[in-house]
Design a protein around this nucleic acid. Sequence first.
DNA 1: TGTATGACAACAA
DNA 2: CTTGTTGCCATAC
Length: 125
Amino acid sequence: MDSGLDSGNYEPAGEAATASFRERVLAVVKLIPAGQVTNYGTVALLAGKPRAARQVGGILYGLRESEMDVPWQRVINAQGGISTYKVGSGELQVALLKAEGVEVIDRTVDLNVYGWRPDDDLLSG
DNA sequence: TGTATGACAACAA
DNA sequence: CTTGTTGCCATAC
């Protein structure tokens, strides 16, 4: 646990303003409802870095068992496609999504059906 | 301190 | 529809 200190990433007992981008990204991903998906750009936007979509992928790539509570499978690309095939997690991601009821056809998800609308989530709760 | 990298995104042809 | 190019910016080295 603590022995495996994360890459120079500490939390100076302050506000989220000092929290690393990584911390905020993981927090945002946890907000994605089961059975729905969103894209890297949206996660980056909600994390406060509208142009850091690529970094979101890089962060999720480094996830380990410690962060297994992060529903990374709900994050796909803006085209509704599974981006994890290039890192060998495609099959796993599709399996996890289908287990939540998300239909994946030809490695693609219909964002018009399963796309998460942060607005709806904010309005309802 | 500087360079290279990449689970992206938007656009051109 | 596909393929290639460009912009982007936090991390890694």
